[in-house]
Every structure is written in C-alpha cells, then in structure tokens.
Amino acid sequence: MVTKKQFLTKLNASLKRLPSSERQDILQDMEEYFEIGIEEGKTEEQISASLGSPHQIAKELAAAYRVEKVGETATASNILRAVWAVIGLGFFNLVIVLGPFVALAGFIIAGWIVSVSFVASPILVLINVSIHPQIFEPFDLFFSIGLAGLGLFIAIGMFFATRAITNGFVRYLKYNVGLVKGGMKHVQY
C-alpha cells in the first residue's frame, strides 16, 4: 500500500534525470489526480494502486522526453540517451531497438572512417616518403590522390546518409515509445 506522498516521492526519484521544470509539471498532474480522487471519496492507497507502478510511469515519461529531445536536436549524445531510455522500457525494446541501432551506427562509423582515411591517404604517402625517400614511387602519390577524390565523394554521400538514417531512426524511436509496454497492470514495485 502506497500513500500519495510515497507515490510522488518515488515518481520524483525515478525522474531525477529530467529537467526540474518538466518534473514539476508531471508531479503537479499526479497531485491533481490524487486530489480529485480524494474529493470523490477514494483513499490515497486506492488511487496509487490504480495508477500502477510509479517507476514504470517514470520510464515511459523519460523515454518520451528523450525522444522528443532528439527530434529537436539530433546530437550523438541525445540519440544515445534516447536509445537508452527506450531500451529501458522493456526487454522487447532491447531486441527491436538495440539491434538496428548497432547495425546503423556501425555502418555510419565505418563509412566515415573509410572516407576520412581515403582523404588522408596523400598525406600518409608524403609522410612515408619523408621517412624513407629511397622507396618513393610516383604511382603511390597519384593513386593516393585518386583515393582522396573518391574519399571526398564518399564523405558527401555519408553526410546525406547520416542525416537520412538519423531522421529515420528518430521516427522509429517515436513509434516505439507509442507502441510498447503501457497499461501494464499488476506491476509490482
């Protein structure tokens, strides 16, 4: 049996990573819910039992918040936080979110590494020449300049691919937040 105060304290503690304005707003909503319930003659314990686990509610609120943040600014750290929060919703999400995330992140990282190392290849040839001038082959230099050109094209492609993949993945996260694990009855805490 959980009283109003206990419920709100637990909810607040589970939301500690959210900004305080957001948290205050949420707690106010729940407080209003308790107050109206009490006016209608319910006990605090009945109300908190019908609300379910504050921990689960907090998880869903946090996931929704993180995904919303990514929608505003898709920085790498925002994306990681959102992925983490959505995964936290349940085992199902671990499978359907982490898998695609690792695959897409791997693709993006590999693509950028390839393009950067291609672009840098003439510099590597020059460094090599300065260390071992006796083994200089003009072919190496021409070939590496060609590679650098190719690397630039790959970089341009990766720029658009990264943007498209990020947008698509953010939409996928949003869809997940809406889809999975809500309305869990009988959750113990």
Binding site: I26, D29, Y33, S50, L51, S53, I57, E60, L61, G182
Partner: peptide, 10 residues
Amino acid sequence: SEGSAYPLLR
C-alpha cells in the same frame, strides 16, 4: 493501469 495515460497525454 491509470498511470499509463499520463505519459500518453504529455
């Protein structure tokens, strides 16, 4: 579970 409506509303 009544609490799950709130994340949805937000």
